[in-house]
Design a protein around this nucleic acid. Structure first.
Lengths: 207, 207
DNA sequence: CGTGTTTTTTACCATTTGGTAAAGCCACGA
DNA sequence: TCGTGGCTTTACCAAATGGTAAAAAACACG
């Protein structure tokens, strides 16, 4: 079996796997799993199709590897939300980190979005095992803050999902945003400001 | 050429075109254009593949027909926003209509989302010609309301896009929502309430 | 340099896929 | 009853696609 060696990956292996993952991210995030072809990925990676198969067990393995890597990084901003910090600032900082990720990693955002929209056929287990516990933990934290009067009371689950909805929108619907708000830089600043305004408005506890 | 007749479509034609469009909506909204196959659509429509081609010129024609039909209906809620009505109530009513559409027509929402995420290859012209003018018109209307002191001042473009982001999220990311908030009914009610809270909070002018 | 290992390519293959040709079916009017 | 015209199916096809086999090339290292 020409599967990649289990032990120390060589420098070439590391480099080429990276190249493949990056190319696959391009292609999968633009066409989804079924719509993407190995030839497209191979060309984007600058190597031959059988060479992909040398490094990964197949199309699906590449996709799964991408999703696995993504799931970890993608949740980091939420993990950083600190129970010790100031509640309002913690949440606003989280919002800012998510907005920053949307701007810097739109491909990752879209890969994730397409996978979810299509029913998460390859990621449901990850959602249950990785996302759900973290989500519940942070919702509990936020609920605690609200009970302590540090934040305006509301449904923490809906709050977190609202953050996701708003922050990811600018990456996922970039094409539409660009048609409606042609000035990219101005649009981005305005989006940042608006999103911040929203969460300040609904989170600031009423004196 | 076996193209569908240009004149009066028969009852059978109407019925079958509907069936095809409905089946295609299922398949395209789940796999995207490239990931969908004519066989899938044919099976979902309960007819043979060549029969699809009898009614539509090909895969792309079906997709385009779907997007055309969608673009019209999809913008109706925004068109209904009335310059004569009470500003805050008009916007809240629009938000409610969009939420309702997300719940009732999740396939349409996903079809649209996938198309946009993938760069809108078949819809950019529509965005420019249909969406943009309406968007600009309604933004101007909202801006007027703000200047008149009827709404808290803010970027109208960002406001409208925020409405889209929040309302569509529940249709598009349904899979994720269901993992995190298993109780569908409760989740939906909470979402409605939360979204309404958000827009009341940021739109109510400060006395 | 020589030899064993890793990496890459060329040449294929079976299946899937969008689409076509042509014959069959079926309702309906003369 | 027989056509006639719209509708549907069966039988295909060429291209694309995921993947394999095996040889060639590049490399590591004594």
């Amino acid at each position: 079996m020409p599967a990649p060696p289990e032990k120390k990956p060589s420098r070439i292996q590391i480099r080429n796997r990276r190249k493949i993952m990056d190319a696959a991210l391009d292609v999968f995030s633009q066409h989804g799993f079924r719509g993407a072809t190995l030839d497209q990925i191979a060309e984007a990676a600058g190597m031959s199709k059988p060479n992909l198969i040398y490094y990964f067990d197949g199309k699906e393995a590449i996709h799964v590897a991408l999703l696995n890597a993504l799931m970890t990084e993608w949740l980091d901003p939420l993990r950083e939300m600190d129970a010790q910090g100031d509640p309002l600032q913690e949440i606003l900082a989280y919002v800012r980190r998510k907005m920053e990720m949307s701007r810097q990693f739109p491909r990752e955002s879209r890969l994730f979005a397409i996978e979810i929209i299509q029913g998460a056929p390859r990621m449901l287990p990850h959602l249950e095992s990785d996302l759900k516990p973290l989500f519940d933990e942070k919702c509990a934290l936020i609920a605690g803050w609200m009970e302590a009067g540090k934040l305006a009371p509301q449904d923490p689950q809906q709050l977190v999902m609202s953050i996701w909805a708003l922050t990811q929108h600018f990456a996922d619907f970039d094409t539409q945003v660009r048609v409606l708000v042609p000035d990219e830089v101005a649009g981005w600043d305005a989006a940042n400001a608006h999103v911040e305004t929203i969460f300040k408005a609904i989170l600031t506890p009423k004196g």
